[in-house]
Design a protein around this nucleic acid. Sequence first.
DNA 1: TTTATGGCTGTCA
DNA 2: ATGACAGCCATAA
Length: 108
Amino acid sequence: MPIDTSRSDYQRIYATVDAIPRGRVATYGQVAREAGLPRNARQVGFALRHLPADSELPWHRVVNAGGEISGRGKPDKERRHRRLLEREGIDFGPRDRVDLRRFGWRPD
DNA sequence: TTTATGGCTGTCA
DNA sequence: ATGACAGCCATAA
């Protein structure tokens, strides 16, 4: 097994992602901070990348700081990612970006 | 142990 | 606006 997803760090990351409400998006850095791992934006991406395909986690609600999808060289995956968000009513602007001011998740 | 790699980010030219 | 760059830090090799 490559990584141990039962570690508390991952549990918190997953729990935070799971808390993102429908129709909202959060950035990797934001999820990291919410999970109590302030400098671990990349680990959030790493954790999501290794999610099982059948996971219930709303990983698609996590985008980069610019409101863009971080497909990292996977156009097909990006398209899927985008569609999942649009299905929730999230609008990608003319430049394939989400307006974080409108759709950004602001926990209370 | 040491180096390389990332679904990142903030800063600055 | 865009692109380069340096921090960042857990994993992988």
